[in-house]
């Protein structure tokens, strides 16, 4: 298979990996707590694709046990990812809630400003 053909037949993986790396990069490179969470969300979403794309068969139906339906898509990855989506939503909600609390306590959601505020002896016991 030609390089282009190889690329095209695996295009869902390429999208997955671009999203994965882009999300991880945002988490690491950005100092804004909100942007970090957005990056984290993109990173997690790419995993949903990683699971779901291989479960799809072209021309496949829902898994119906009947003689008329011979080719069906595997439903298990979808079920797994439904769970993973719930986990992702919970993580994002908790992350946002903590970011709100940090904003209340420090008056900022920029990581460098928060760290500077603690260095200046904002200690509260």
């Amino acid at each position: 298979m030609s390089v282009a053909g190889h690329f095209a037949s695996h295009y869902s993986y390429w999208i997955t990996f671009v999203l994965m790396v882009a999300g991880l990069y945002i988490v690491i490179a950005r100092g804004n707590l909100m942007k970090k969470l957005i990056g984290l969300s993109i990173f997690q979403t790419s995993v949903y694709l990683l699971y779901i794309a291989p479960g799809k068969l072209i021309g496949g139906t829902a898994p119906i046990v009947a003689p008329a339906f011979k080719v069906y898509s595997n439903p298990l990855p979808h079920v797994l990812i439904l769970t993973a989506i719930v986990v992702g939503v919970a993580t994002l909600a908790l992350g946002l809630a903590i970011a709100v609390r940090i904003r209340e306590a420090y008056g900022s959601i920029e990581e460098d400003e928060i760290l500077a505020a603690d260095r200046d002896g904002g200690e509260r016991v």
């Binding site: 984290l40 699971y51 908790l94 940090i102 928060i114 603690d118 904002g122 016991v125």
Partner: peptide, 29 residues
């Protein structure tokens, strides 16, 4: 935790912990 730095510690742990768990689930995938 009582200290406001507990919030930041929890946030950092959330980010790193989620990356860790996501790496794990990629491996399992």
């Amino acid at each position: 935790g009582r200290d406001r730095r507990a919030l930041l510690a929890a946030y950092q742990y959330l980010i790193l912990g989620t990356i860790g768990a996501t790496f794990y689930v990629i491996g399992v995938g």
